[in-house]
Design a protein around this nucleic acid. Structure first.
Length: 488
RNA sequence: GUGCCUAUAGCAUAAUGGUUAGUGCGCCGGGUUGUGGUCCCGGUAAUGAGAGUUCGAUUCUCUCUAGGCACCCCA
């Protein structure tokens, strides 16, 4: 019985060998696919709306930050560094409970002590808080501050919109003069102009809370008869925040708006005079602006002047074309419990500016690459190399190397890619002789020199080839770009 | 948060309801045991995830995820 069965089995196995093998292969393939799926699922991923700013982009960021700092210095603004985490309360009190920022975009949580905290969605509230906390009302007014750092809003990501994004902001606290509003706008325009982005300032005045209240009644009354024609969004706006209906994109509303009351007609005399002065200053400073009666801002604390910085379009308009915005916020300090203190400020989104720089091919001048590469063979050479590097650093000769590569061939390949003029070669033999090889990378000619004299010889060679002192003070680590001057 | 579009190696791309998913760039190595560029050879690495339809799915369907666009809103 057993033999027979064995025969059958053998027979079967034989007949179905190929099929069986195929099935096995398939099983293996499936298992491998599942394994791959597991591996992929376990890979770390970025949080939605968060991003890495890679070395390739750093040149633009550095150029932008350097420009910002230069303009800030020129207008004698002082830098302030503010915490990323604040009490939730700070923002809910200032930005406005109705705003989307508070309603759905703010990252809020309780910390270990049970304090309700929030990742800052903007910077102005923190600046105002700092002004109060540190008694800055005792400083000469207006206090001029600027900040730069990441902000957080849980919005749906889009091009030029991220959940963590960088803002630079300028605030002038303690003066209600129109020149303050104007100077901030001039400054914003200056930064973007220096970068190379043409803009037009969209500007409007929303007056004091009092005249705004009257205007809102009027505006609501105007739209009431047309209520049925409005879409859901606009109905909601009319109820919750009527001012917002002014920047509706619905054609029906746009049509209706032409006949709607405009806020400028409801401004009191003081507000009107203030606004006129701001515009006169802008004329004087030759900042291109456009009166925009429909411009309103999302944050509750604004009064009087409001403005946005719109990139001049070349037809290919993008939704996120506002590079920044701001305005006067005379009530904010008092709202936080400070003395009544007039103030004005604006913020710009760095990602949007960098994006525009990319579209316009705006880049920092390429950093002169290292002119010298140092190839080391073996540990003895590496030991000597450590000392030599110190010498080069003191002589301000930027020297590149390929840490971690062993063969001379591989090191020369890197030297070639970096485009250096000279490669220093230090091997066992040279270490013993107290010499080093200098290879001219263009001609391929090599000379053996006393290692003690290599620094001075190199210096002479580099000066000859450049005429001027070509040596930047930049570190060798990043060969690609960057200005070396870096803030933030 | 709502609607629409998209998803192939690190990047750029090709192709397909059916054997091993092709190419270029990059990266690594060899041709050259201590000598770069050009060239030649080799290697590396991908159908975003899950489920369904099917004998068979990277391709068709659904869900999820991510990105883009428009809206909401905003920088």
């Amino acid at each position: 019985m057993t033999p027979k069965k064995t025969n059958e089995e053998e027979e079967l196995t034989f007949e179905e060998e190929i099929e069986k093998k195929a099935a096995e292969e398939k099983g293996k393939a499936k298992a491998a696919a599942e394994e791959e799926g597991r591996r992929r699922r376990s890979l770390p991923t970025l949080l939605r709306g968060f991003r890495d700013i890679l070395p390739d982009e750093q040149g633009k960021w550095n150029l932008l930050r350097d420009t910002i700092r230069q303009v800030a210095d020129a207008y004698s603004f002082d830098r302030i560094e503010l915490p990323i985490l604040e009490k939730t309360d700070l923002f809910t009190r200032t930005i406005g409970k109705q705003s989307d920022i508070i309603q759905k975009e703010m990252y809020v949580f309780e910390d270990q002590a049970g304090d309700k905290v929030a990742l800052r969605p903007e910077g102005t509230a923190s600046v105002a808080r700092a002004y109060i906390n540190h008694g800055m009302l005792n400083l000469p007014q207006p206090v001029k501050l600027w900040y730069l750092g990441p902000m957080f809003r849980h919005d749906r990501p889009q091009a030029g919109r991220y959940r963590q994004f960088y803002q630079v902001g300028f605030e002038m606290i303690g003066s209600n003069e129109a020149i303050v509003d104007a100077q901030l706008i001039v400054l914003a325009h200056r930064i973007l102009k220096d970068i190379g982005i043409p803009i037009t300032v969209q500007i409007n005045s929303i007056g004091t809370p009092e005249c705004r209240r009257e205007y809102l009644v009027e505006l609501t009354n105007y739209f009431r008869p047309f209520r049925k024609k409005l879409n859901e969004d606009d109905k909601r706006r009319l109820q919750k925040n009527p001012l917002r209906i002014l920047d509706s994109k619905d054609p029906v509303v746009l049509e209706l708006l032409t006949g709607a009351p405009q806020i400028v007609d409801w401004l009191d005399e003081v507000s009107k005079a203030h606004f006129m002065k701001v515009l006169e200053f802008l004329d004087e400073a030759e900042v291109p602006y456009a009166l925009n009666p429909y411009l309103v801002r999302g944050l509750d604390y604004y009064t009087h002047t409001v403005f946005e910085l719109w990139e001049d379009g070349d037809g290919g308009e993008l939704a996120q074309n506002a590079l920044g915005g701001g305005g006067r916020y005379d009530g904010l300090l008092e709202l936080l419990g400070g003395r009544p203190t007039p103030a004005c400020g604006f913020a710009m989104g760095l990602e949007r500016i960098v994006r525009s720089m990319a579209e316009r091919n705006i880049d920092p001048p390429a950093r002169p690459a290292s002119k010298v590469f140092f190839a080391q063979l073996g540990d003895a050479a590496r030991r000597v190399g450590l000392r030599l590097f110190e010498e080069f650093r003191k002589a301000k000769i930027p020297v590149a190397e390929a840490t971690g590569k062993n063969s001379l061939k591989a090191q020369l390949e890197v030297a070639n890619k970096l485009g250096v003029s000279y490669t220093l070669i230090l091997g066992q033999k040279e270490v013993l002789d107290g010499t080093i090889i200098i290879r001219d990378m263009d001609s391929g000619a090599q000379e053996i020199v006393d290692i003690k004299k290599v620094t001075s010889i190199l210096q002479r060679k580099l000066e000859q080839s450049e005429g001027v002192n070509p040596l930047s003070h930049t570190p060798v680590a990043d060969q690609k770009q960057g200005t070396g001057i870096t803030i933030e």
